[in-house]
Write a protein that binds this DNA or RNA. Structure first.
Lengths: 232, 232
DNA sequence: TCAATTGGTGTAAAAATGACAATAAGTCTG
DNA sequence: CAGACTTATTGTCATTTTTACACCAATTGA
């Protein structure tokens, strides 16, 4: 075997850290492994990358196989390449994270998974491989991203209240309830000019109904084109 | 060949984007390839990762082989994994960037390179593989990082003038000369409390000599431990 | 000594942030 | 239907941060 050939003995995988939000809590989608190694352990949904498949395409495929979902926010975080991270050989993995609204999707476990389940991020226990480390890195990235890009809005219904939006940020950023000042939050978010009133009010609540707002993507794109940087 | 085996036909490499500063300009270290593919083309210094070598270790090795340098700032950026990015097979590469002071190192080209040379970042032409894309991504990362971590100081002599420091930021951030207000810059950087006066002044200049300052790493670590976030 | 060059400094206006509490609009219960 | 309950909505003031801006100081060299 030539020296060059000895290098072509490796594989790579993608691991998706799919964060989900259900209206109150930040969760992450885990599968219970149905095959060795780590059979029975919870793990991030990942898969080997096909030889003729781009990395980004592979990440989209895994996401779609697990959630039936296309076109959501999906971003590469980084590669994890410790020599001994996979017991069966040299496998580098590339981590992606995405963020979806749990209620929009029915999770359909892939063949290599016995179960797929949404776990509270705060209660995740020991995972297979180096997945705890990957999760931690992606969680850090998520917190950074949610503050610097308008990705949070996709987790809410198209029309939402400002209180719901505030609670979403408090949940993802792991702040106590009310950790953000309500008046200052409203001043800031409305001051951005990317929300428009839906001209409707909340229904079915046993108290004063709140106004509903919508995210104005066109307006946001305009602002970005003019150099605007989202920051909350 | 089993299905699993068919996946272990890939290789990975690291490509280092080594930014250097020579007192005035931001440069990047490129090699001229001495072997196919892309023989004769300029490329980022990279190498295949040994089968029993961690990714981070490989990046450090490549950096050391090219510059004789250890212990400098080195950070993974992301993986690049388009199917056709390498003409000889499926090779994913993981990009790292580092930042060094050009005058500190003598570049010693590795075997696969005919020449290694510092190129002005602004004048880099067409590179081998997808290296233009990698360079662009790393440059973006560098600009972000230099604003949020005190990595710029390592590019200057241990004792430096505030004007030199300001010019360094202007150069890396691609701002016009004087693009940063001198008074505001000094107020901000001195207000951080991470610079101490060296109690010396500049010598050999045909004008009023400037005070020299030093970066106080201990003080910076203290501040970080207390929650301080570098931001310029 | 004077011209040339770069070093060093303060202030005021504007903008952003952060702290803080009372009234409004509904539902529900008795 | 009155009163209790719950959440929605709104503004001000003090503080901090940011930005814009111009003159005198120190040295070299002709």
């Amino acid at each position: 075997m030539s020296e060059v050939e000895s290098f072509f003995k490796s594989a790579f995988s993608v691991d998706n850290v799919i964060f989900g939000f259900d209206g109150g809590d930040l969760r992450v989608l885990l599968i219970q492994r149905g095959a060795a190694p780590f059979r029975g352990k919870w793990a991030l949904p990942g898969d080997l990358v096909y030889p003729n498949e781009d990395l980004d395409t592979a990440a989209e495929r895994v996401l779609e196989q697990l959630t039936g979902l296309r076109g959501v926010y999906l971003e590469q975080v980084k590669a994890f390449g410790a020599v001994d991270r996979h017991p069966l050989g040299r496998v580098i993995t590339v981590a992606y994270f995405s963020l979806i609204k749990i209620s929009n999707y029915v999770v359909t476990p892939a063949s290599f998974a016995q179960f797929a389940q949404w776990h509270l991020v705060k209660e995740v226990d020991e995972l297979a491989f180096d997945h705890n480390q990957i999760l931690a890195t992606c969680l850090h990235q998520l917190k950074h991203k949610v503050r610097n890009a308008p990705i949070g809005f996709e987790l809410l219904p198209p029309k939402f209240t400002l209180t719901a939006l505030q609670q979403l940020y408090e949940s993802i950023l792991d702040l106590p309830v009310g950790g953000i000042d309500k008046r200052n939050f409203r001043k800031k978010i409305l001051g951005m000019g990317v929300l428009v009133e839906a001209q409707e009010i909340q229904e079915g609540v046993a108290h004063r109904p709140a106004k509903l707002y919508q995210f104005d993507a066109d307006r946001y794109d305009q602002l970005v084109a003019g150099g605007y940087v989202f920051d909350i």
